[in-house]
């Protein structure tokens, strides 16, 4: 059984079609990269998995999206509960203007947890997982805004991990970062895949090549090709993929 699966999913914004029917399965504990030129629908596709598209007023979705075999667009599913199982990291680091500790504890607190010791343990664990602990352990009460961009993004990862999701969605997580911070995040992704299923949208094809097991190429709202990352970059089946990965458009 796939960890995540899209079955004939289509997305419309009002009258405009954003995604053509897509069929795609994602294995447990792998990193899947979504690539393609801007506006190709890769972010829209990513946001299907935690139902962030629901927040857009005129967005209409058909087909099924399965998490552990269950359709997450079923009426019995509360998107709020779903998002606790499917974490997300955004393009720009977006820590809350609170302390470092409170940022990570946020997800626990909104679940009504008040046990201080338990929260402290979980925060520390999440900061360890995101490889930020050593840098911030003495300054947990400092405002998160004072961290550097790369640290902020790892804090956002820790924040998402603290509620112990099984899936982590990353929407171009390094596009606003410098090369050194980017390398750290990529290294982190590599470590995290033993525990989490990761889906990452990226503009940067080298990055997709470095971090992902499988890669999906999107173009004009269509899933053009989905294969092992190696195949996509060395021996793509479709001409459009070939032209994109060799940099002839996009």
């Amino acid at each position: 059984m796939f960890k995540l699966e899209a079955k004939n999913v289509e997305v419309f914004y009002g009258e405009n079609r954003a995604l053509h029917p897509i069929q795609m399965g994602i294995e447990r504990n792998t990193v899947t990269a979504l690539i393609g030129p801007s506006g190709c629908g890769k972010s829209t596709f990513l946001r299907l998995f935690n139902r962030m598209n629901d927040l857009i007023d005129n967005c209409r979705i058909s087909g099924e999206v399965l998490l552990d075999g269950q359709n997450i667009y079923d009426n019995s599913i509360d998107p709020v509960d779903l998002r606790k199982k499917v974490g997300m990291v955004f393009q720009k680091p977006n820590p809350f203007p609170k302390s470092i500790f409170e940022n990570v504890a946020f997800g626990l607190r909104i679940n009504g947890i008040r046990d201080k010791k338990y929260i402290a343990e979980k925060v520390e664990k999440a900061l360890h997982l995101s490889a930020l602990w050593d840098e911030v352990k003495d300054t947990l009460n400092k405002s998160a805004i004072e961290l550097s961009g790369g640290q902020q993004q790892r804090l956002c990862i820790a924040r998402a991990l603290a509620v112990e999701p099984s899936v982590l969605l990353m929407d171009e997580p390094t596009s606003a970062l410098d090369p050194i911070s980017t390398a750290k995040i990529e290294q982190l992704i590599d470590q995290l895949k033993s525990e989490f299923t990761i889906v990452i949208v990226t503009h940067n094809m080298q990055q997709a090549g470095r971090v992902s097991n499988r890669t999906a190429f999107f173009h004009m709202g269509e899933l053009v090709e989905y294969d092992n990352t190696k195949n996509i970059f060395t021996n793509p089946a479709k001409e459009r993929t070939q032209r994109y990965v060799t940099g002839r458009f996009g």
């Binding site: 709020v80 997300m88 809350f96 203007p97 946020f106 997800g107 924040r159």
Partner: peptide, 27 residues
């Protein structure tokens, strides 16, 4: 309040009201 702050809160599984009361209002 920047949209991405709200998005971050929603994506962790906060309800709309939690997002408003814990993220939006304090800022």
């Amino acid at each position: 309040i920047p949209r991405d702050l709200r998005a971050a809160s929603i994506a962790i599984g906060a309800t709309r009201f939690q997002t408003i009361s814990r993220v939006v209002l304090p800022v």
